[in-house]
Write a protein that binds this DNA or RNA. Structure first.
Length: 237
DNA sequence: CGGTTTTGACCAGCGC
DNA sequence: GCGCTGGTCAAAACCG
């Protein structure tokens, strides 16, 4: 069991009083990289639309990272408890609820990374997931958009298994790209979460997955909460 | 037969 | 107002 797990959580709360300007917000975490996973050589990415992506990881790790972040977003309290159980800093508080994500008027992911980082002086591998989101509250009435999170991963598979069940509802070739963008919607009734999957024009090996909204339910029925916890536990071995 | 995918049409937002 | 573009709809095709 590793004892140096580090949850990184830095965000500023949405301020209702602020009008018509951008409000930066960041969320995420670092955890030790499991010994049974291997990393390919890491490199920097220079994609204008997704600035700050720092590294590339294996599809397996990426899938798990996505599931982790989904858990952190959907069940911040449980995620915090779970992380604490694995020796995460108790003082850290993954308090995403307070950010009132669903009240954001408008948001775009301006930065994200999934990768490997050194932890201070020692060079332990960490898998990290973070999303820096620039929020913008507009004057006047404007269509409310759900918060969005995106991930960039290296994978042959377009749709990574994040524990939820998705139905494809559209595909579009976007300008200046060779690869089509696919649109998916959560199959759960009353759940409005959507995700977009596309390949990076500059590097088709990279898959960009963008989630929009928050699930109003647990991951698909087969993946009960206890199982999710079990998977999270397995991640550390 | 029911659920999912495909794909062309349609719609809305935005810039000019 | 018009054209461009991204996002969604919905009918048909596909599949287990």
């Amino acid at each position: 069991m590793m004892s140096t797990t580090n949850i990184v959580n830095h965000h500023s709360l949405f301020d209702e009083e602020q009008q018509d300007h951008e409000i930066p917000m960041q969320m995420g975490f670092n955890i030790p990289f499991p010994p049974n996973m291997t990393l390919p050589p890491l490199g920097n990415c220079h994609d204008q639309s997704l600035k700050g992506v720092s590294a590339i990881i294996t599809p397996e790790a990426a899938t798990f990272a996505e599931a982790l972040l989904a858990t952190a977003v959907q069940k911040p309290r449980e995620f915090q408890d779970l992380a604490s159980g694995f020796g995460c800093g108790g003082g850290q508080n993954l308090d995403l609820n307070r950010s009132r994500m669903n009240s954001w008027a408008w948001g775009e992911v301006s930065d994200c990374w999934i990768g490997k980082r050194s932890n201070g002086g020692d060079d332990h591998n960490h898998i990290g997931v973070s999303a820096a989101i620039k929020m913008k509250k507009m004057k006047g009435r404007r269509k409310v958009r759900e918060p969005r999170f995106c991930f960039k991963t290296m994978s042959d598979i377009d749709v990574l298994d994040d524990g939820y069940k998705w139905r494809k509802y559209g595909q579009k070739v976007v300008k200046n790209t060779q690869h089509p963008r696919s649109y998916y919607r959560c199959t759960q009734d009353s759940c409005r979460v959507k995700k977009r999957v596309e390949r990076l024009a500059e590097d088709p090996r990279m898959v960009i997955t963008t989630y929009e909204g928050r699930h109003a339910h647990s991951p698909s029925n087969e993946l009960e909460e206890s199982q999710t916890h079990s998977e999270l536990a397995n991640f550390f071995w």
